[in-house]
Simulated assay, not measured.
Amino acid sequence: MDFRLTDDQRALRKGARALLTGRFGREALRAAADREGRVDRELWRELGRAGFFALRLPESEGGVGLGLPEAVLLFEEAGRVLLPGPLVATHLAAGMVPGAADGTAVVTCGSQLAPFIQHFEDADAVVMLGAMPGAVIVEVRAAAAVRSLDPLTPLHRLPHPPPPAAPPVPAVLLTAAEQLGSAARSTEEAVRHAKARVQFGRPVGAFQAVKHLCAEMLVRTEVARAAVYAAAAVPGPAEAAGAKLLADDAAVRNARDCLQVFGGTGFTWEADVHLHLKRALLRARMWLTASQAEEMNAQALASAL
């Protein structure tokens, strides 16, 4: 099997990057942090018009008719810019919740971070996706706000948490793709700073310790990329779990190493590095934790013996 991207997939990724960097650059990111992660409805509708949410819907249902590999490319780009909002839930709800496909509705999910729910105040619908494809739309009138680690992801506590259920494979993979995008961006920012920051008359990137950090960040990113792309091409619960395990590790550790490369400036509010770390830590708790992913892979290996 050839895992290389096709010309159409590369064009899709290029277009998504141009859209997101143009519409959600650093100023927009900071504005989103100032409004505590509230969804930008205009941008959400623009994403809908671009086919972000309807990408995997059949053309007969008004969708784009593409597959999970293409969706992974889009969500990787969303992770690069730290785009806020319940992207995975709205994408999965396309075709099920009116308005989700075209971005006129914001859909969140009650099982992403049980017993917490993301972007509750912005949501037009709450969907329990744990039992896909038998997902149901539920009415949640009230939920208590809780303090979120990530200033771009407001959280609420559900009054009645959903029962445990196996997470949908697409949800796990798309979240892993967001983590992959964040890991790649942290690597790029660390390299950029290492080239520009001068200490003792030399760029800090000339020092061996910093070189090692950047090299390790790149290795983690590319290993995670291979796992996420492969799992998208041949999806399965164990494959998705392995991909998310590697992507979570890459996103969290790369953000931490990026902080080390930046030094003291990386811990200030003016830097964006800490936002990648906080989002990576939060996403690592979504759908599958590291221990759950390890258990799924262990069971898959044991059953193959």
Rank of each mutant, 00 (worst) to 15 (best):
G65N: 07
C258G: 11
A224M: 02
F24Y: 10
V146H: 01
R197N: 04
A125I: 06
T108M: 04
I137T: 14
L305R: 14
A71P: 07
P115A: 05
A171I: 04
A71V: 13
R4F: 14
T104P: 06
L155S: 01
A50V: 04
F52W: 15
H119Y: 15
F24M: 03
P69W: 00
A142P: 13
A31S: 09
E46K: 01
A232L: 00
W44D: 00
A196V: 08
E139C: 01
L83P: 04
V228E: 11
Q118T: 13
H274A: 13
R45G: 07
F120C: 06
M286E: 15
R4V: 14
E46D: 10
P69Q: 11
F207G: 12
G266D: 01
H193M: 12
D122H: 08
A32Q: 03
A142S: 15
R157K: 11
G242L: 02
A251P: 09
P133L: 12
S182P: 00
A135K: 14
L155C: 01
A177W: 07
I137G: 07
R56W: 00
E178S: 12
G263A: 08
A16D: 05
L74M: 08
L259W: 11
G110T: 10
A11Q: 13
T153Y: 06
T153C: 12
C214F: 01
R10Y: 09
P168E: 04
V234W: 09
P151T: 05
E59C: 01
A31F: 01
P151E: 03
H91Y: 07
R17V: 08
L12P: 03
A93L: 10
L259M: 11
F207L: 14
A190C: 05
A255G: 14
T108Q: 06
P170R: 06
V39T: 02
D272G: 13
P159H: 08
P151H: 08
F24V: 07
T104S: 15
P237A: 04
V107Y: 03
E59A: 12
L282P: 11
Q208A: 15
P161E: 04
L5V: 11
V204D: 05
